[in-house]
Write a protein that binds this DNA or RNA. Structure first.
Lengths: 211, 211
DNA sequence: CTTGACAGTGAACGAGTGTTTACTATACAT
DNA sequence: ATGTATAGTAAACACTCGTTCACTGTCAAG
């Protein structure tokens, strides 16, 4: 932790402590109270400094919407560290056109290392077992397990989307000047419009198939 | 996820998504806006229900001070004993017609549970990273990782076979009254005869693809 | 001496935020 | 028919919260 004054380090340390305890950023007045400041402006000064130095960022005007941006774990992670995560696998759902198959809840669990999958442990991944053939042109077959990371999609990501109460896999297309839409990877399946009526549950990060 | 209505699951899913993206709990009006409610009271109703059912908790009166309390990773069944194996991944080798690419030795490792892969721990599995397109009709693409179990093949198994010092993936065909042979899963690739000249290294048990 | 960095006091403002009250509608079970 | 659960509209209120402005004090460097 370079170029922070002692006081700034204390403030940052308290914030981290508070977040680990409460899962929320402390309010100005909570920080003020902790350090026995008489004014929230003292807090403001320190948070400004931390922001200027790149340790935190904020959404102006929103309550408790600072966040820590400095990645403290980037300095220490050895290359060969094993980081296996446990992923719930949910039941057979329609990967194709909605066809009335009911989600069957959790059917199993999968353990795999985060590097292979390309996800962060902190993002609560889940997996879906595919039913149907709407994504076969993307190499996702009936019976495959697709690992989903809850994260907003970018253009061309394969996403898990909730449509009419069912989770389905589609490719998310977001081209400039055009409303985003979802597209099957099978020429026999139609496109869906528009994305605004959908709920994106996450992006597909990996496929696991048992031969 | 039991005893949640569909709508409640959607709300919880959105909250998780928002938190993974912004590191903050969404405000009532953010949830309201996302689901196109006309009133924050609709949000309130759902959050109350989620709280009553034990999925979230809150600090009354504080902004963005709900938190998720339900531990989604805690639902492990006792009978789901974790049996994660460590698998060496070998380098890019020709999955297709021999083309002169040298095996590059171990390029990484993969940890995954035995149940997902369908192997026994006692059989020293290894994995290959596929290069080429000879098995695309079997849904094995360039760049995929294929987990191989050293075990004699049966008809129609996909096998790793050593040909002229190089490992390649093929489908093993053994029909009655006919000598066994290997066959690509791509019509543009020829068959191989005979198997007696080959060394079968193992059978393919699973494919892992990072999207 | 001046300037800048750092640290803080004091006060107030406007917007964000959670929460309440009153109500409607639908579906289902008794 | 009645009660309950679920889902939501409408409106308003009080508090939380971030932020600004004006200011003071200490210390180090030029």
């Amino acid at each position: 932790m370079e170029n922070l004054t002692l006081r700034q380090q204390e403030i940052l340390g308290y914030i981290q402590l508070h977040m680990s305890q409460f899962d929320t950023w402390p309010s100005f007045r909570e920080i003020q109270s902790h350090f026995r400041f008489k004014s929230t402006n003292a807090v403001m000064g320190h948070l400004r400094a931390l922001e200027t130095k790149g340790y935190i960022s904020r959404v102006p005007g929103q309550a408790r919407s600072f966040r820590i941006t400095y990645d403290f774990n980037d300095d220490q992670r050895p290359e060969d560290a094993i980081d296996v995560i446990d992923i719930p696998v949910y039941g057979t759902i329609a990967a194709g056109y909605p066809d009335g198959v009911e989600p069957s809840g959790e059917i199993g669990r999968l353990q795999i290392d985060t590097k292979t999958v390309g996800v962060r442990r902190s993002r609560r991944c889940f997996a879906l077992k595919v039913s149907g053939e709407s994504m076969i042109d993307a190499g996702i077959y009936d019976g495959d397990i697709v690992i989903i990371e809850p994260y907003p999609p970018q253009n061309n990501d394969i996403v898990a989307a909730l449509i009419d109460g069912e989770t389905t896999l589609k490719r998310f297309i977001q081209e400039p000047g055009r409303a985003p839409f979802l597209k099957a990877e099978n020429d026999h399946y139609p496109e869906f419009h528009p994305v605004t009526e959908l709920i994106i549950q996450g992006i597909a990060k990996a496929v696991v198939r048992n031969l």
